[in-house]
Design a protein around this nucleic acid. Structure first.
Lengths: 322, 322
DNA sequence: ATTTAGTATTGAAACGTTTCCAACTTGATG
DNA sequence: CATCAAGTTGGAAACGTTTCAATACTAAAT
């Protein structure tokens, strides 16, 4: 493995000169440049990026921390984030926290030690107080504080839109179906929007919210169905919630959309091969991803951002459930 | 940002000693250790991993190169790979090649420059001849040569099993439906197994294979349906192929499974909320992921592997399409 | 021929670790 | 008391770059 020194010797110049040729910095005579390039060619030299990162005290690595890449929403997000990073020659490090706070902290430590250039996080911890150095951070869908810029879909408008669409589809008594995972989560606003719009329109509504349905789907959806027999519309906080509800409802002989209209949130289905195709509030995932990275780059460059939360408009996508 | 030197000064020892304390290497008196730890605590010192990587000439970073993390099969794979890597303190770098050969090559260069400890690749290029240094590589589902160890599901047995299950479900004239993407792909063996078992059992069968249906689903599935009206069973090379076929078939009034039984491959659905739930040959994704990483670690340690292809048994998972 | 103002190039320091050898301390042994 | 081995510690080199002050050229202007 030859280094810059070998190139310098072969080309008969100093290492500094080789460095300047490689990085196109400073002035170097065409003739010298030619010699150096020839030497590089001959030795099959490739710059050692690790050494460079070390010397420069910074790397072109950005970490993406999320609960699980397995979830379709996150994998779509990761896809666009990687793409956007690559455009600027940055690399992506993937950290699955499993949604476990202690693992988030552990990863944060690790990222600090590894001097990543920035972090995009979808976390439960308020990472602000746990990251000691000033690594630039953008969070998605979580609002912590001014220091950590948040990119999110317009959840509030999403909630309002969902309510309106349910009503438009004929629902007289719609319900919001959700759960609470993190107090920092922006997703709360979906409920807020839903409620506010219902009140504004004078529509009777229900709010069903339990802390962690993941533990026991059976009782979460069973209880809902049993308790609110007269509900004829459901705005589920997530497409997965919607899908599960529909499945349980079907088992109880409830037909969707005939008996109950259902709208989800996310838009994880990008095709129509699996049914039901859920009517949903589509998150602008690509836009969110690209914006997040662009903002992160600005922070890395030292710019200060003009806002602490960036909300991107959502759209309704009609499926088979309304 | 304080370094090892600051710690050494504060503790009144030499940098070498601090290093030994941090890494628990060599002998150091309890009293000295205490002093050093105190200094570390006081200065809030964290070791600079980048400097360490540089000095050590190796990093604990493994790259995963795949066509698109967005695809559910790959995102599940990535999930387990990250998990397995983390157990040994390794980090995961994610590279979406988009299936583009030139991008694969570009990433390979980059990974070499970044001195990653190893690569797990699902690629179209024969990466063997394009990676000049000897970075350990494990490939998934692609068999190139002895140098690159391959981890794959037992595609051949999968093909045989699919044929048998179709027959068992009542199909008299089953078809294999696939495409050719890479000559190195192990997935060819699905067809081989299917064909061989059909011949062994004396079952009449069809093989439908076109190069790249992604371009034009309409004609790919349309042609198949038009051409083989008497087919009553389909083994699709992928669950996505199966789902698409079913959708197009439905439009032509063909009922699944009444008129045609369908079996896919992969097992990307880990739930039953979306329909049809496809009968499928389930890839042991978790096992493949963990094995791939374990083998990669062995290669990193310098061990030589006893085989050049590791095939993991598959299972049939019944859904609603047989 | 000498100065001048660029332009090109050199050489060495620095980045934060690990590692290795030499040197110093101990405490036990003869 | 001298010797020795084992246990500790110090100090410096090395890893492959970038960068910067200093020096060496070059060509035009005097």
């Amino acid at each position: 493995m030859s280094g810059i020194k070998d190139v310098a010797i072969l080309a008969g110049v100093a290492v500094g000169t080789v460095s300047r040729v490689i990085n196109n910095t400073g002035a170097v005579k065409p003739e010298t440049r030619r010699k150096v390039k020839a030497a590089i060619e001959q030795l099959n030299y490739v710059p050692n990026e690790v050494a460079r990162n070390f010397k420069m005290q910074k790397s072109k690595m950005v970490a993406l921390m999320l609960p699980s890449i397995w979830h379709p929403f996150f994998s779509e997000l990761a896809y666009y984030i990687e793409d956007e990073l690559d455009r600027e020659g940055y690399k992506l490090m993937l950290c699955n926290s499993g949604g476990k706070p202690e693992k988030e902290l552990y990863y944060l430590d690790m990222l600090e030690q590894n001097k990543v250039a920035g972090i995009v996080g979808i976390t439960y911890n308020d990472i602000e107080n746990n990251v000691s150095t000033d690594i630039p951070i953008i969070s998605i869908d979580r609002h912590f504080s001014k220091k950590i810029t948040c990119v999110t879909s317009d959840n509030f408008e999403g909630g309002r839109l969902a309510l309106r669409e349910l009503v438009k589809a004929g629902s007289k008594k719609p319900a919001f179906m959700g759960s609470v995972t993190s107090v920092f989560s922006e997703t709360m606003n979906r409920r807020e929007g839903f409620v506010q719009e219902a009140e504004a329109l004078g529509v009777e509504y229900i709010v069903y919210e339990e802390s962690d349905p993941v533990q026991d789907d059976e009782s979460y959806y069973g209880n809902f169905i049993k308790r609110y027999q007269d509900v004829d519309g459901v705005f589920a906080i997530t497409d997965m919630f919607a899908a599960k509800y529909i499945e349980y409802a079907k088992q109880q002989g409830i037909r969707v959309p005939e008996d109950v209209k259902v709208i989800g949130y996310d838009g994880i289905q990008d095709h129509t091969y699996f049914h039901p195709v859920i009517s949903t509030i589509r998150q602008p995932v690509e836009e969110m991803a690209r914006l997040a990275i662009k903002l992160l780059f600005k922070k890395i460059e030292g710019e200060t951002l003009d806002r602490d939360t960036y909300r991107i408009p959502i759209t309704f996508r009609k499926g088979e459930t309304t």
